[in-house]
Design a protein around this nucleic acid. Structure first.
Lengths: 336, 336
DNA sequence: TTGTAGGCGTTATCAA
DNA sequence: TTGATAACGCCTACAA
């Protein structure tokens, strides 16, 4: 392995001068710079990151904690983050967590082990934050969840207004004439996102003078095809006369639609379905899925910008709401 | 920041003894072990990875180079790798590359910067390997491509027989009575996988006494919804009387189906479609997509096993073929 | 069973 | 503008 020492020896300069060239500092003669650079390329020398980071005690790494491995929106955001970060000096360190895992505990571990300069939470449970976030020292951004009420000075957030967005989704069903509406979502006690969307549903029901009996209409599932498939089956057995379903993610909606079709029910002829997230999947699905479109590009871009703002410009934590959009699709039938 | 020194001071033992406990070595008295562990947990001490890796000059990191960010099969494999690795002492370092990027060049960079103990290539172009792989010193596994002909002693492979699998896919179309068959795939000059599947198509055509005019029936696309959508449009304009399409990935197939539907053509009534990969997407799509199922679990599991075999057991490079399966779906119509 | 000391590859301080 | 040299936190002979 070729080290800075070899470059020093080969170029006739000292280690320090080589180090200066490598970090392009100004106090080096053009001559030295040229010569050293020549040797560096000739030897294909690349600095040892471990040594560098050990010395500087910072890592140019941004930790990303992703809750829920089948979450397409998160997958899209991660892709986008990759794209944005790849031509910079930073690296992403991505950890995938179970939907119900304690992301704050993981974050603390990650910080000690990898010394990231900042953290991005894709999904997160405020309960865990209240309990343990004080132990996280670096700037963080919670993506797709609001964190303003938590009041941590190093925790920003970029989120969709889940209450309003879910309400908008269910409104669309009511407005199409549906009254017997089922809901597929995460466990509101464990997933804050699900809780918020649940509240949005309640508001929509109330606004349309309907009673929302969660025991009847709400079915818990994980954010995956399979889990939603099974949840839809349970809902179907239980809820007589059901005409429409709101699924709290596109992946869930698609799992549900397959369950319906397997029972001989088609969408939207027999049952209308609306999803959530607005991933490209929704657009390419058959029928084109009605959904709430969150802009993953905006979510990704803003979260990085805010994080860098906190890290480099020492800005304060901010809490941003990213607008959502209703995408009509073809999966809702207007009845009556 | 709490270091091993603090633990030593606090516990009354020396740094080495603490280090021994941390690496649970046997030559420590139970007493020391107990005491030191108590201090470790009390101080929430976690070793500094940079220092550790600098010293050991190995990183317990497995580098993963993923070619093509929209490739669902790769996404599934990556998920699976995560799942398998998370409870071990190893970490994954994943880099996403463009479909046409030089993965070997990236691999060399990655090795110098991160010192992975091994590398997994998800997709790869043999040309790049011939050119530069000699510069990669660590054990590697090429996943989903054969690498036996390359003859590198540190390069294994786990792959589907792409020629046979593609042939099987096109055979299914011929056997359903189709003769005017279009093909959507990557650029055979840049993507080895695409080239192999292209050859499989040729064989199928030949076996059914049909001439395969690539200029007419083959349309290039990237492995994404959008790109396949546009490719399908081009194919449709050019190929009169087309009745079936083989797409070299499920994502492509779905992009194509949307393009067909947007032109008022339905699947399989007007045009039959078969995909490739057998991701869960295919199963949940409407219509359920006929496809070639590659077992991403097997691919992931075997690639890790083989890699560890090479790393820890110093085994030789091996080249494995993982069986594929035809999944019939609902997207092929039998004509005549 | 435990401790001492040297070194991993780099950066940074200080002196030349 | 350059060069010695001391850290960074950890592991590991080797010695006790």
């Amino acid at each position: 392995m070729v080290t800075i020492k070899d470059i020093a020896r080969e170029s006739g300069y000292s280690i320090s001068t080589v180090s200066r060239v490598l970090n392009n500092r100004s106090d080096v003669s053009p001559d030295a710079k040229r010569k050293i650079e020549e040797v560096v390329t000739r030897f294909h020398f690349v600095p040892n990151n471990n040594a560098k980071q050990l010395k500087q005690n910072n890592s140019r790494t941004i930790g990303v904690l992703v809750k829920g491995i089948s979450n397409m929106l998160f997958a899209n955001i991660v892709e986008e983050l990759h794209r944005m970060i790849e031509r910079t000096a930073y690296t992403l360190n991505i950890s995938y967590l179970d939907e119900d895992a304690d992301e704050v505990e993981q974050a603390i571990l990650l910080c000690r082990e990898r010394k990231p300069i900042g953290l991005l939470f894709l999904g997160g449970n405020p309960e865990y934050f209240k309990k343990g976030f004080a132990g996280v020292g670096v700037p963080c951004v919670m993506v797709s969840n609001r964190a303003n009420e938590l009041g941590f000075s190093n925790l920003s957030s970029v989120a969709t207004d889940d209450v309003a967005a879910a309400q908008c989704a269910v409104d669309a069903l009511f407005e199409a004439g549906h009254r017997k509406i089922g809901i597929l979502g995460g466990d509101p006690e464990k997933s804050y996102t699900s809780l918020q969307r649940f509240r949005g549903c309640e508001r929509s029901f109330a606004a349309h003078g309907a009673a929302m009996d969660a025991g009847l209409c709400y079915e818990k599932a994980h954010f995956s095809f399979e889990s939603a498939y099974r949840a839809m089956e349970r809902l179907l057995t239980r809820y007589d006369g059901l005409t429409a379903v709101f699924a709290m993610s596109d992946v869930m909606a698609i799992g549900a639609i397959r369950a319906l079709r397997d029972r001989g029910l088609s969408v939207p002829e027999h049952i209308s379905v609306i999803g959530f997230d607005g991933t490209s999947l929704a657009e390419y699905y058959n029928p084109k899925l009605a959904t709430i479109r969150q802009s993953y590009q905006t979510l990704a871009a803003r979260s990085i910008e805010i994080l860098f703002g906190q890290i480099e410009l020492k800005k304060e934590a901010i809490h941003e709401i990213v607008p959502f959009e209703f995408a009509s699709g073809e999966s809702i039938r207007i009845i009556k």
